[in-house]
Design a protein around this nucleic acid. Structure first.
Lengths: 166, 166
DNA sequence: GCACCGGATGATACTTATAGGCAAGTAGGA
DNA sequence: TCCTACTTGCCTATAAGTATCATCCGGTGC
C-alpha cells in the first residue's frame, strides 16, 4: 500500500469517526494502522499481536471490540473460512477471494467480470439481497509444493532446485 | 427430502465407507441420518443435539470427528459465515447461498447461471482453483419483519396484521 | 458362531475465540 | 482547563473445537 493510499484510508477512518460522533482513541488508530498495512486477511488474534508492538498494554478484548466497531462503521469487512477464526479484510469495495482449502490462506481477486453477476430470482419479501462475494476454493502454491515434497520423500525432494512441473 | 432420495444418499454413504475401508458404526449412521434429513445448514452442535435423540450417550467429540470424516469422504461440505460456528451442508453438488447478515440463516440457491462463471486469471503455479461458491448477503424475511416492528414501537407494531410494505 | 485386530468411541481436560460488567481513564467540546 | 460521555482494561464466563487415552465395537478370518 502506497503512502498516499494509506493517507487516504486514514482520512476515511477519521471522517467515519467524526460522522458517527465516536472519539478517535490511540487504540483505534493503532488497530486501524495495523490492519490497513497488511496485505493479508488477519484474524483478531493476529491484529492483536501486531498492535501490541505499538501498544503493549492493549487488551485482546479491546481489539475485538474495536474490530467490531470498524465493521459497523464500514471501515473493514468480516470474512471467514471454515475451520479458522473470523478474518478481517481492510478492503471494502467489491472484490473476491481465492481460499486455500488446506492452510486457509485468502488471496484477493480483482476481476471486473465477477462484479456483474446475475442475481438469483428470490422473492424480495423472502430475502433482500445487498451484495455478494465469490469464493474460489483450491490449493495455494505453498501447500502444493509441500505436497509434492512429501509425495516423493525417497526421490530427493530437495534435488537441484526442485522439478517445476506445474 | 423424499424417501427415495434418502435411500440413495444412504447407499452413497455406505459405498463411501466401503470404498475407504471405514467401518459403518451406528454413530456414523445416526449422524448421517440426522444431517441428510435437515433442510438447513446445522452447526456441529445442532447435529450433536439431533443425534442425541437417537443415541443419548454419543459424545460431542464423536460428532465432530464423524463430521470431519464425512467432509473428507465428500458426503457433506463445510460452509461458514462470519460470527457463527462452522456449518455442514448435506448438498455436495454445486449450489450457492443466501446468507442473512443478521441472524446467519443460510438458504440454498439453485441457479444454473451461477454455475458457469468465468474463473479469474490466476497463474496456475500460484493457485490451483478447484471450484467456487457464491455467497449473496442480505437480510432474511424474519429479520426484516423484526426490524420493522422495532422501528415503530409507538405506532402499534401489532396492528391489523402489519403493513406489508415490501 | 467365535475370537481377534485395528480403528472408533467416550470422558475429560485444554485451547482458542468471543462476550458482559464495571471501575478507571481519555478524547473532545464548552 | 474542566466536564462528560464514551472507551479501555481486567476479570470472569461461555461456546466451539481439539488432544489424549483407555475401552469398545465393526469387520473379517476361522
Amino acid at each position: 500500500m502506497s503512502p498516499a493510499d494509506k493517507q487516504q484510508r486514514l482520512a476515511g477512518f477519521l471522517a467515519a469517526h467524526r460522522d458517527s460522533g465516536l472519539p478517535v482513541t490511540i487504540q483505534r488508530r493503532a488497530v486501524f494502522e495495523a490492519i490497513v498495512e497488511r496485505p493479508d486477511h488477519p484474524t483478531a488474534e493476529q491484529v492483536y499481536r501486531a498492535v501490541r508492538q505499538d501498544l503493549p498494554q492493549i487488551s485482546r478484548m479491546t481489539v475485538h471490540r474495536i474490530l467490531g466497531t470498524f465493521v459497523s462503521l464500514g471501515l473493514v469487512t468480516k470474512t471467514c473460512h471454515p475451520g479458522s477464526a473470523t478474518r478481517f479484510d481492510p478492503k471494502t469495495h467489491q472484490h473476491h477471494h481465492l481460499v486455500c482449502l488446506e492452510c486457509g490462506t485468502i488471496i484477493d481477486i480483482e476481476d471486473s467480470r465477477l462484479n456483474s453477476l446475475p442475481w438469483p430470482e428470490v422473492d424480495p419479501r423472502e430475502f433482500a439481497i445487498q451484495d455478494y462475494h465469490v469464493h474460489f476454493h483450491g490449493r495455494c502454491a505453498r501447500c502444493r509444493q509441500k505436497e509434492r515434497e512429501s509425495a516423493r520423500p525417497a526421490a530427493g525432494p530437495r534435488g537441484a532446485g526442485g522439478p517445476q512441473d506445474t
